[in-house]
Design a protein around this nucleic acid. Sequence first.
DNA 1: CGCAGAGCATGCGAAAACGCATGCCATGGA
DNA 2: TCCATGGCATGCGTTTTCGCATGCTCTGCG
Lengths: 290, 290
Amino acid sequence: MEPQWDDLRTVLALVRGKTLAAAAEALGVNYTTVARRVSRLETALGLTLFERLADGYQPTEAGLRVAERAAAMAAETDSLLRQLAGADARLSGPLTITAPQLLIAHVLAPSLKRFRETYPDVSLQVRATNDLLDLTRREADVAIRVSRAPGDTLKGLRLTEQHTASFATKDWADRIRDDPKGPHDWILFADHSDLPKSVQSAYPGARVRYRFDDMIAMAGAAQAGLGIVRMPMFLGRALPGLVQVPCLPPQSYADIWIVAHPDVWTGARVKAFRDILVPDMKTARPLFVA
Amino acid sequence: MEPQWDDLRTVLALVRGKTLAAAAEALGVNYTTVARRVSRLETALGLTLFERLADGYQPTEAGLRVAERAAAMAAETDSLLRQLAGADARLSGPLTITAPQLLIAHVLAPSLKRFRETYPDVSLQVRATNDLLDLTRREADVAIRVSRAPGDTLKGLRLTEQHTASFATKDWADRIRDDPKGPHDWILFADHSDLPKSVQSAYPGARVRYRFDDMIAMAGAAQAGLGIVRMPMFLGRALPGLVQVPCLPPQSYADIWIVAHPDVWTGARVKAFRDILVPDMKTARPLFVA
DNA sequence: CGCAGAGCATGCGAAAACGCATGCCATGGA
DNA sequence: TCCATGGCATGCGTTTTCGCATGCTCTGCG
């Protein structure tokens, strides 16, 4: 008679995922379980929540209502988990951080090591991705982000500003020095616009040879001598085999922030992590600017 | 790792009920199940939610936070169930109503019968109690209530006003008529004040002989000839063996309302019930007034 | 001091929920 | 037309969850 709360949650997952398989994946159960829970809830409510069509489960009006309320409940659990994390005074247990892969690989790693040594009981989980994980849903406790602002609902500190510049192998650097008007190749980001006009006029030999959609691949391509890449200062300086080339003068780029949900910001482990990272990044500032 | 929603609900029940047994009772499960679910959630969260003391489970700070959020989730499910009931257009299925026992026994019963005959597919559950059931939590869909106003969050229609008067057996009525100054006995409601001064002066023989805390018992006592009872007009008129006595002139009393939560008010079965009851009570109005 | 009752922990067998394998059906491309 | 794919239903064996019975501890009372 009374609905089970986890069944409501299952309906939400099914409405969002459209198919039993997707909902099951999201919930971490077998898809038959999703089907059974939905049936059970329908029996309990005496209502049809989904039409079983050939191409999946289509929610009825009532099914949508259930999902709507379940979404509100999910927001409550998110809020709860954040609050518990924010009130947790222990310097032991899990802490999940996320940051762009390249930032971790070339800048943050030493800080992570220092954190680990300072707080050996904290088990640090690192999610290295360019995707913006949802800190509201606690996909991570803390994020290091490259952006203009920390985001509307998040709390943050600016760790440093940063510049970009053009980098290439020493080969290319020599060639450009010797013959600035001569031909040289650029590797551009896929969704970027063309080369700036200033480059075109100062270096008429500049040609866009490649377009990549991933900065790691671009960096590797630059190291392999495929051409010139505009990249963050810290990255060009950190990658062996690359030197700065004058084609594109340094220009300021999005700042680097440490952000967290306000609820979580106050958590002991989060605070400890900040206390390690903020001074480290202050020290590392020269790496980021021209 | 991820908490199960029904475990959150269990924590709420335990915080509210103080003991495993009380929580289990509220949830309709065995108390060992409550203990297990709480343990499981504590493991999942890595937190202690309750201190196991000799006299029961004492919630920790974290336990209270969980309960707080779970309460918000419970409010969501209540809201959902109300919405579903309010959107239900079917004239079949369950409908729960509540009303004071005496009102049902002596006034509403014929309307219930008529409703049952008009809508044979609706299974009517009647909760006859003087307790004010929580319509927000859907302890009933509709309530017939004796009160000055329908309540702040509820929607209602006034079915009729009503009067009270004094009733007793014909014996007493004769005696009072023959000797108004002579002794006669009153049965008062326990928490009521004393007899009005007007009665004292007009009938100096009036004495308070009994105090009851239940109107059904008082009515029976009056029928058994124990004395005079002030009661609603409809009740005195309906009870065999009782006649109105002039000791206490008719005075107006709280009105009779039909009320429901606004979400539920629009439901087909609720509307059908209103459509039966409102005209019936309009017809029955003479029973209630002097 | 002994006893009764309330409240909880634990162990065991029963019941429910679950995952997996299989089969059906519709769609879409070769 | 045939086949591959995606999506769902169903049956079966396993795992998990649950309820019940038993025993422990603490409190209050005569």
